[in-house]
Amino acid sequence: MTHNAMIDEWYPVGLFSKLDAAGRKTALMGEPIDVARDAEGNAKVTEGNGRPLPVRVRYGHVWSSLGAPQKALFAIPEADQAGRRFVDVGVVRVRCSPLRAVENFLDIAHFPFVHTDILGAEPHTEVQNYKVEIRDDEVWATQVKFYQPQAAKSASGGITTEYMYRVPAPTCAVLYKTCPPRPSEWDVITLFVQPLAEDLCDVWPWMALFDDTTSLTDLIHFQQTIFLQDRSILENQIPRLLPLDPGMEIPTRADLTSVAYRRWLKRHDYTYGAQLVAQ
């Protein structure tokens, strides 16, 4: 692997609650790694040759890096807010570029067609104008509005949901969306992506919600339903790597977030899982 700025980033490598002493053999950017719980109960991550890797435990997950992270793991202030429920949704493996998994998460236009009758429904297919900006070197999309038949497990009927999207790290995205039981707050739904290879990833969704009535299993199943509807689409996207060459595709207005994400990746040399030159 050529050196790439992504090597110094933090990546999710497992659920902290599922760690055991025997460890879990997995991979990070093509390198075999082992994620285990040590005798003191702390998370421990080692490379195949035994080299210990940096470790953080945050947002229900164990985080590590093959390089030397210069920055702290990005902050999600809502993770410390009282009254929220934190949901470990569990891993799903997808044969796609880790960057494509994030880009799909940022897209709204596919809701009526892929998440029919849940996150969208025909004929309500229009993506209204929204704002995209780079804020503190993160990609942010705000004022995103979309009509949804069942926006959340806690929503009982169709509502126009407002979203904000945030990309704080090349393979992580945070979604803030209208919280039906508590209109002054945002529900937080994240997609943490572990790059196993340039065209293979483990996806770890995680949520921080205000919802005191829905069972934990129902919350997990709702999110797994949504993500598994995406999985078959993601595995069939061509080219497999995310194209960063602007000549490759013609975006529409609804793709503003994706355009900003791709430009941001390119500017930072975050190109693991990307295709730089159109083929």
Partner: peptide, 10 residues
């Protein structure tokens, strides 16, 4: 009756 098969192994 939903069962937490994954990740809960219920």
């Amino acid at each position: 009756r939903p069962v937490d098969f994954h990740p809960g192994a219920e």
